[in-house]
């Protein structure tokens, strides 16, 4: 997993609540057996005016010029500013893979759906929860400011705006540690293999039907 330490990233605002993982990456792209290559179809139904299928040449498709990701000012964005309950719906990790493949390294919202939130940390993407008022402020600042970037410091747990204002955020210490160091949590868990075996022995004697 790629480390996340400090990010200076252009912000793209997606001003709608309850953005679901079906919208982030539509189902037809879930047929891939790979982890990479989902970026070109991130928000496919909103980015393009014609229906997309896997393997299509996106350069020949009709682009929805109104959609924020297609606007010139936001090209190269690495921070997605969103509204409440971002990433709700299906557990598809493809949603995070699509954001990451597109170049998004951090998503800021007032709240996230649990599974999506969890999936972000497994892929070097930092989801940040800020209060409603702070998110409102960022939305209004982004719209009035060309090239609006944020400085995100995971170790310090804060975000600096171009005007120098600072917002702090919470992050789970273990997840922070993994993200800062790009750690593989399977390897970390396997360090406790003896504990797992011990648990299994005890449990198997109490409830053998769980192991048949």
């Amino acid at each position: 997993m790629e480390k996340f330490t400090v990010l200076d990233g252009l912000v793209v605002p997606l001003d709608r609540a309850n953005v679901d993982t079906d919208a982030i990456i539509p189902k037809q792209y879930l047929k891939s057996i790979k982890r990479a290559g989902f970026g070109p179809n991130l928000f496919d139904d909103w980015r393009y005016l014609d229906p997309g299928e896997p393997g299509m040449d996106n350069s020949t498709r009709r682009v929805n010029e109104d959609f924020v990701l297609n606007q010139v000012a936001y090209q190269g964005a690495e921070v997605l500013l969103a509204r409440e309950n971002f990433g709700c719906g299906s557990s598809r990790e493809h949603a995070v893979w699509a954001l990451e493949d597109y170049g998004i390294r951090s998503v800021i919202a007032p709240s996230f759906a649990d599974i999506f939130f969890n999936n972000c940390f497994k892929n070097g993407v930092l989801p940040i929860i800020l209060a409603d008022e702070a998110v409102d402020r960022l939305f209004s600042e982004v719209s009035g400011h060309n090239g609006y970037s944020l400085h995100i410091d995971l170790d310090a747990q804060n975000i600096k705006t171009p005007s120098g204002e600072t917002f702090t955020f919470e992050v789970d210490p273990f997840r922070k540690h993994c993200l800062l160091n790009g750690l593989d949590d399977i390897a970390l868990t396997l360090q406790h293999a003896a504990d797992i075996k011990l648990y299994e022995q005890k449990r198997q004697s109490e409830a053998p039907w769980l192991f048949s």
Binding site: S91, N118, I186
Partner: peptide, 15 residues
């Protein structure tokens, strides 16, 4: 429900 990274985690560690 879990994501694919967690699917791999459960496969490898049962946890």
């Amino acid at each position: 429900g879990i994501g694919t990274s967690e699917v791999e985690h459960v496969m490898a560690t049962q946890c």
